[in-house]
Amino acid sequence: MTKHIPVHIQFSQINKRYAKKHFGFFTDNKTSKVILKDADLELKGGECILLTGKNGSGKSTLLRILAGLLKPDSATINTGLETLSWKKANKLIRQQVMYLYQEPYMFDGSVTRNLEYALGGTERGKQSPNKIKQALKWANLEHRASTSAKCLSGGERQRVALAQAWLKQPSVLLLDEPTANMDEESRRATEDLLCKFKDIGTALLIASHDVNHFHHTMDKRLLLKGGLIMEIYDEGVDKNKDDEKSSHDNISIFPSKKQLKSNI
């Protein structure tokens, strides 16, 4: 693995609501559901953030916006060089950011083919069979290299997705419940891999309910609640089973000016 030039991307005032659209033009305000309200987030190379939140709090939505896959209602992105709108930054973001689905999608074809897709045109040269072999080895799927990827189990799919990330080596990696379907051994292998990603300067953001699993890897813990992102400071992570309640007193919220105004 080669080291990245560490990125530093600042997303601010991310707003997103899901709403029905009439004829594709008019948003229906009655049925709209606010998911993100001026949420701010910072991604730094070599830092691992754990994003927690209840089911339906909008973790996947946030991750897909950060990956440039879902259009927010508004968002500004500071890349360190310039401040851009989500739309303008989109192309740049998509080159650097990779998003792993909660339930990874496997393309029609063998596991090997699915891994090949993660290699860019320039890399699909002589080394690629070797690289893919290594990726298969990591995923512990060497014996299934030529089986159809659509037939894999949930945990196996997640391992293939992580192997794809290893092949692509993006500077920002967003993981949506990466170990949800994994057994103990795969989970440990995944944590090791995430540590390696950190070492080469990848910015990591993991969405998960399970606070305990990424204990060793994470540097920072965020909570998504009511459309806001809050940072949680806690020492004994293991003790806090119910994250929303027990860690309530150590939550610090950074409201934006706009929110302060609306609160008053």
Partner: peptide, 26 residues
Amino acid sequence: ADIRAWDTARTLSRNPLHALLIIMRE
């Protein structure tokens, strides 16, 4: 195609043309 297919192709590949070829094959 599955709703995740196009997004997966986009986030997996390095350029839009490659993503298009992946989804066309799918």
